[in-house]
Design a protein around this nucleic acid. Sequence first.
DNA 1: TAGATTGTTAATCGATTAACAATC
DNA 2: TAGATTGTTAATCGATTAACAATC
Lengths: 211, 211
Amino acid sequence: MIRGKDGTIIPRVVIERLPRYYRYFDWLDGKVEKISSKKLGEYMGASASQVRLDLSYFGDFGQQGYGYNIKKLKQELANILNINSETSFIIVGAGNIGRAMTRYKAFANTGFMLKGIFDINPDLRGQKLGNVEIRHTDEMVQFIKDNHIDIAILAIPKDEANEVTKTLVDAGIKGILNFAPLDLDVTNHITIENIHIIDKMLALSFMIHRA
Amino acid sequence: MIRGKDGTIIPRVVIERLPRYYRYFDWLDGKVEKISSKKLGEYMGASASQVRLDLSYFGDFGQQGYGYNIKKLKQELANILNINSETSFIIVGAGNIGRAMTRYKAFANTGFMLKGIFDINPDLRGQKLGNVEIRHTDEMVQFIKDNHIDIAILAIPKDEANEVTKTLVDAGIKGILNFAPLDLDVTNHITIENIHIIDKMLALSFMIHRA
DNA sequence: TAGATTGTTAATCGATTAACAATC
DNA sequence: TAGATTGTTAATCGATTAACAATC
């Protein structure tokens, strides 16, 4: 239950939209100085009301008769989303997806710092991916504690996912980006975001076959 | 506007949930013979009402006093989601994510068949990834037409994404799974599913920092 | 038969949009 | 000042849940 400006509860749908606002402000930055909720809504395919209400959970960023200053609002959103401060994360699983995430450049632009990669296969130990070396899963708990890691990207087969999740949570991980094709079994106050690639492909397939 | 059983419009939220139902039925298959909407809802973190209403858009799959037969419903969902028939797709962009998708095993279990990989870099031409070779983007339009490809996974930098999307749509692509960190500019009746990795990470970061 | 559980309609809840006073 | 546009409250819309007759 996350609260905004006046202690009002921010709906999760609004939170999920924030990074999208940031993308648009980043895109507009340099192009124009200011924008109205109406114009931004047109770009984003949203109503002006939604734009204004969404942003109003976090502050009074606009000005009547003027709109929103892009440099200012981009900065505000960057702060809200912790883009200016460094957020450390680890990758669990050095398979296809784990490796791709290792090389993924976009993390750096949004303050995310890869601190470690872990795999259960001892043969991979010490192998370098970029400038981070693969460690064995046995070292993971201590590493999370020593380096104060909050976020883990989980990219392992589904059969091991819940067991590893339990280990991560016990070690102090606060959020997981889950690529495994299942819903993780978590009881406590930990946040999960799922990327279910096959689910998306199936929804796509369903829609094009019915269209 | 996709219609179900009695010509009622199926809400997009329901469509997006279908693959998840399939995952649960696949998981239950072999474990038990039947399940009630109440029990399934418990597993999925949904209400019994939602389970029943969601499924009822597609048919009368249950039986009073009994529940839903798992083998039967799994089969029904597989048909609805075209899992039993082959769905061809291509990957556009042979970078980190494109390559990971090439090696992604889960596609095969759901009827997805990788037919081609394309990249703008001519040096990659002919290079084999698994049993599919990289082709140059120049060959893409003809390939899509010749092989009746409906779905493309877009894994290229955002600056080129809209231009390539236009090419894909003109060539006859019906659905795109977009990994590029922007909202594709599409006018016509084409379906897009987005995987915005950084957006998910930012939402995660926001939530754990506020918790 | 009695108990269980469906499919569907009605009630509720939450999210989106419209309206408007405030004000730059 | 007049026009534009905000932040917010009220109205609407859509999705979820509750209720229940039908029936296995």
